[in-house]
Design a protein around this nucleic acid. Sequence first.
DNA 1: CATGAATGAGTGTTCATTCAT
DNA 2: CATGAATGAACACTCATTCAT
Lengths: 186, 186, 186, 186
Amino acid sequence: MSPPPLRADAARNRERVLAVAQEAIDAGDASLALNEIARRAGVGVGTVYRHFPTRQALLEAVADEPLDRLLEQARLAEAQDDPLTGLARLVRAAVVVETGNAGVAEVLAAPYVADAATEAKKTELFAAAGRVLERARAGGAVRPDLDVGDIQRLVCGIGYAARLGDGDRDERADRYTEMLIAGMRP
Amino acid sequence: MSPPPLRADAARNRERVLAVAQEAIDAGDASLALNEIARRAGVGVGTVYRHFPTRQALLEAVADEPLDRLLEQARLAEAQDDPLTGLARLVRAAVVVETGNAGVAEVLAAPYVADAATEAKKTELFAAAGRVLERARAGGAVRPDLDVGDIQRLVCGIGYAARLGDGDRDERADRYTEMLIAGMRP
Amino acid sequence: MSPPPLRADAARNRERVLAVAQEAIDAGDASLALNEIARRAGVGVGTVYRHFPTRQALLEAVADEPLDRLLEQARLAEAQDDPLTGLARLVRAAVVVETGNAGVAEVLAAPYVADAATEAKKTELFAAAGRVLERARAGGAVRPDLDVGDIQRLVCGIGYAARLGDGDRDERADRYTEMLIAGMRP
Amino acid sequence: MSPPPLRADAARNRERVLAVAQEAIDAGDASLALNEIARRAGVGVGTVYRHFPTRQALLEAVADEPLDRLLEQARLAEAQDDPLTGLARLVRAAVVVETGNAGVAEVLAAPYVADAATEAKKTELFAAAGRVLERARAGGAVRPDLDVGDIQRLVCGIGYAARLGDGDRDERADRYTEMLIAGMRP
DNA sequence: CATGAATGAGTGTTCATTCAT
DNA sequence: CATGAATGAACACTCATTCAT
């Protein structure tokens, strides 16, 4: 089910490339030119292509670990007694992740994604979010016209908003999330 | 103060290019390849460059008329008796404009723009928004920690959210705006 | 019907590129790497692409003028009283052209060709060859099992044979053609 | 004088690679991308390189067995009473082999080959062909201006002709060979 | 010996921008 | 002013070959 473990040197190269890609994304360069990534990582282009055949694959690999963290939060959100608290927790976690990582933001905003494992994670995340939302809606804690697609879009939108401009993005992420949650009330 | 009026044929070319660029933006192609714009407009590339020296200039020219409409709305918002109603009106107008036009969205989200006239309009718009916001804040109608930069970012974020995915964007723009206004309450 | 005449400089560039391509082909390098052609011709890559979007287009352009000469020979062959003499004339002309120009050889050997004008010339050439062959066959001057496809293949094969190795290719082309014509007798 | 026998697994790998290469050549893919060959043969690229250091070496190895068959035919041709019949037999055998195997065709058309054993076989083949040709020429059965290089070139040319296009290549090989033999008469 | 990851030169192709006509 | 040919940097992608494991 899982791929064979990488050779030590291959794993090291893979990590280097991922790190450089993460840096590039953090620096706001979403173009991810594979030549440039290779140069900065100190590996040949071919090596980048071997590990990540497309820009999309690289992007999704960068998003993989944050997605896992987000899934963990989704599980905690589901375990929460109060549905609105759970929803708030999930939304906050998603916005925080997106604010700190434009790569995840792109993956979460995309309608579909190339890598099957990533797609599965997205599906699972949305499913969990759907369940949390449904509980909140059933208890009358949020507007009845909200669906899970709205949550996805609003989270992406708030993350986008928090990333705009200089200043303290995390502080903004918190405030905007608070406002979003408040705005969801019926 | 204003540039000399264009020759008739020059003006016609300018309009053609603008129309084609607007179409391209509406179609979601924000790349604005100037060669392609020129081809579709039936003019030479050089002509496009003469009128719009940079991609930014073209983008801002396309945003010019929607910006004017938005400024008009800002004036109406200022004239409103109830400050929160005024703010809501302005936010709604901005989100609607952005939702229908990714070009304006980019111009509004940018920290600064190339064209002086466009910059002036943005400044005026933000000033008006600032006044409306200040009135609302003074009356305790909105959270005291909101500043005009937050409004700018949130409007852009909500517009971004409404544009994500298929379906009825305008309907989403309305609902999301409603939620945003509600979330602004203290 | 004909394309607009090229600007003087454009025509000069086109000719340079063609000349360099012809040289490369003559030197036995059929790869026609467009970057390399551009470098040798002293023009930008983009210029080569503008004139010849594909390697195939360049190849066919190089073959254009020899094809015209061949068509002229085909007309003379048709005008010949004796059908076998006509056929011999045509075959000889084709082999000579192919021997001196591997580009034409490739175009003539290909099942179909990208450029419509080139395709038309090939079609016309084969039609003329077909008529000459038919007359010869009807007169019992050649084997009845020969069709125009055989002529095409054999001419290409003999051209290929004459180009193999060093030495006097034209001398070989003549002798081999003579043998081919002799071998066609019933 | 001969290399040490291969280990059983090495021999098996060698055969697999050869088989795959033969398939690729038969399928008309003369590019012989060694990575691809390795993948199809289920071995690592390194293994292919160990056995066949260059593309040429692989090609010649593939040609080895057909060359042996051809040599056998050359011996039979020399044993033939009638020199022209012998020559015809040899030519026919060579064309048949070439028509069915573009790899041998390339080896036979090349001015020299990398592997010493292959070179020796080619030399022996040409020597035998030379003796057969000489007898025929001495008897006045063929044109006096034919030398063994011509035979090599013409055989390759006829093989090339027979391979051009779809249809029954073997049938064409027969007819073209017949014509070639006829054309060789003084 | 076998493996396959790594390399990087080479090639194809696009496109923003300039400038001769 | 308008045109569009020319430019060349930038990027995508491939593949023959080497070498650490």
